[in-house]
Simulated scan of single mutants.
Amino acid sequence: MTTPKLLNRLTFRQLQVFRAVYDQQSYSRAAEALGLTQPAVSAQIRQLEHALGQPLFKYAGRTLHVLPAADALARSVQAIFGQLSRLQMTLSEMAGTIHGELDLAAVSTAQYVVPHLLARFRAHYPNVRVRLRVCNRRQALARLAEQRDDLVIMARIPLDRNLVFMPLLDNEMIPLVWPGHPLLEAEHPTLEDLARHYVLMREPGSGVRSAFEELAAEQDVRLPHTIELGTNEAVKQGVMAQLGVAVLPRLAVRLEVEAGLLRPLDLPGFPLRHSWCAVHPRERFPTPVTELFLRFLEDHLDDVHRHFNAPPSPLPSHGVDCLPLVPP
């Protein structure tokens, strides 16, 4: 098939549907994301396969397998949509407004920071559509490998030369107990003393849990009494309810510590320190909106550092109401 015939038979809608199926690894999830029926998605993929002259996906039982032609097409689709995004940014700049989309994923510990960054960014660029998915570290690594987001915000970046990252803010993890806990009266408490209590932990794959378990292994401390809770918020509430003790990010509990509802515990080896970073694969060239967001972060990180390193207080107003813009 010659190139002109291929160009004449492809449509952007087919490429949009293909990208959704490729990213979601599922016809049904792609249909849900696009607001289409599954038969409509299947029909678009069949038409695309006919135009290309090669199959893209194959079902084996209930598992959708991605074929080599789909991987090749995905690279081209990424370049095509990237060029369209750059064209949109250029036209927006010519018109005096910035439009576009920004897809972010953030590990759950970063959810206490990222909304502050997004609020400032959208105050300057209100026509940028932002999507944020919160996940644990294992899920963030999977999304990073699959290049499903413009940026992933996480700590403990893998040692991989194919990743580009920009440090944002320190993530300090500290041991926490409730007021009146007997360990607060101990003269020199240790991690082994903490481990004699019920320890509230996130699910496997959580970055906080992994960092805590690594420290326990380094100090040769077993954690025989654990209770697994699915979110940092549940762990925090569990400590306040005197269900157990825990290790959590300092920023996740700063308000409760300030209010006297939780008490940090001074233990050897703490705080655990890692930096949250904005990460993307080197081969995934940032979209113009992503580049704009990264430049914005660089310009405003000092303000964010000052805010989170000071006692809890409201951010200064950025002078923009959180109301949709109404065309004149």
Results as ranks from 00 to 15, higher is better:
residue 63 T to L: 09
residue 156 R to I: 02
residue 165 F to Y: 14
residue 164 V to S: 00
residue 47 Q to N: 11
residue 74 A to L: 02
residue 92 S to C: 03
residue 68 P to G: 07
residue 85 S to D: 15
residue 108 S to P: 04
residue 45 I to T: 08
residue 154 M to Y: 06
residue 99 H to R: 14
residue 48 L to Q: 10
residue 168 L to M: 09
residue 95 A to R: 13
residue 136 N to Q: 08
residue 158 P to R: 01
residue 94 M to R: 11
residue 128 V to L: 00
residue 119 A to W: 14
residue 172 E to M: 04
residue 57 F to S: 05
residue 124 H to D: 10
residue 98 I to S: 03
residue 130 V to H: 06
residue 63 T to Q: 13
residue 43 A to V: 12
residue 142 A to C: 08
residue 44 Q to A: 08
residue 103 D to G: 09
residue 155 A to H: 14
residue 90 T to C: 05
residue 108 S to R: 11
residue 161 R to F: 14
residue 49 E to N: 03
residue 128 V to R: 01
residue 103 D to E: 11
residue 117 L to W: 07
residue 116 H to L: 15
residue 156 R to H: 12
residue 108 S to T: 13
residue 45 I to M: 11
residue 144 L to C: 05
residue 105 A to Y: 07
residue 169 L to G: 09
residue 135 C to V: 03
residue 43 A to F: 12
residue 135 C to L: 14
residue 127 N to W: 05
residue 172 E to F: 06
residue 64 L to T: 02
residue 148 R to M: 11
residue 123 A to Y: 04
residue 101 E to P: 02
residue 78 Q to V: 10
residue 62 R to W: 04
residue 87 L to Q: 05
residue 161 R to W: 13
residue 146 E to C: 13
residue 60 A to N: 06
residue 161 R to V: 10
residue 100 G to M: 07
residue 111 Q to F: 05
residue 133 R to L: 11
residue 143 R to K: 11
residue 149 D to Y: 12
residue 169 L to S: 07
residue 58 K to D: 07
residue 162 N to G: 15
residue 141 L to A: 10
residue 171 N to I: 07
residue 96 G to V: 02
residue 168 L to P: 04
residue 123 A to C: 08
residue 83 Q to G: 13
residue 161 R to G: 15
residue 59 Y to Q: 05
residue 88 Q to K: 09
residue 166 M to H: 06
residue 52 L to A: 03
residue 75 R to V: 14
residue 100 G to N: 04
residue 84 L to F: 04
residue 170 D to Y: 03
residue 130 V to M: 12
residue 65 H to I: 06
residue 140 A to Y: 05
residue 104 L to N: 06
residue 113 V to D: 10
residue 154 M to G: 00
residue 97 T to Q: 13
residue 150 D to C: 05
residue 105 A to N: 08
residue 152 V to L: 11
residue 93 E to G: 02
residue 115 P to F: 11
